[in-house]
């Protein structure tokens, strides 16, 4: 059995223009691993949404992607404000994004629902004032 392959990315919170870069990098790497296009797309979309969330709400964070025999695990970690009510945040259309971000076409409240839709497992751990960690699994 092949050993897990790990990728680590720092998601820069100050640079909105480069938000989404890590997911593009991951897509490039996953293409090399002979994964099915469907799996690559799911990971890419879920990670893109998560990455944008970290930039909008948490001034950036880290993204860790682990590829194993049967799954890809994405862990997005930030030290942002945390999510007070996770169930509410998961509702489609619910958003706390500031106006300047919405004016760029982001903050439609579809980020977390999209992440859930594109992954097989998703878990959010969050403490208000401390930060949030989202763990997503896409089965291969």
């Amino acid at each position: 059995m092949a050993e897990a392959v790990r990728f680590h990315f720092d998601v820069d919170g100050d640079n909105f223009a480069s938000a989404g870069e890590a997911s593009v990098q991951v897509k490039k790497l996953l293409r090399q691993l002979a994964l099915s296009p469907e799996v690559i797309r799911k990971v890419s979309i879920a990670m893109y949404e998560g990455e944008i969330n970290m930039v909008i709400h948490a001034n950036g964070g880290t993204a860790d992607v682990t590829v194993e025999e049967d799954r890809i695990t994405i862990v997005l970690s930030d030290s942002g404000p945390g999510i007070a009510d996770i169930d509410q945040a998961m509702q489609a259309g619910y958003s706390t994004a500031p106006e300047n971000v919405r004016s760029l076409g982001f903050g439609a409240g579809m980020g977390l629902p999209n992440m859930k839709r594109n992954t097989d497992q998703m878990q959010i751990e969050s403490t208000v004032g401390v930060g949030t960690t989202v763990t997503m699994v896409v089965l291969i």
């Binding site: 092949a2 050993e3 392959v5 293409r31 090399q32 002979a34 590829v67």
Partner: peptide, 13 residues
Amino acid sequence: RLSEDRGKAMEIM
């Protein structure tokens, strides 16, 4: 693709 075999591709990666 580094290899058509995923296990092998992961080792190479």
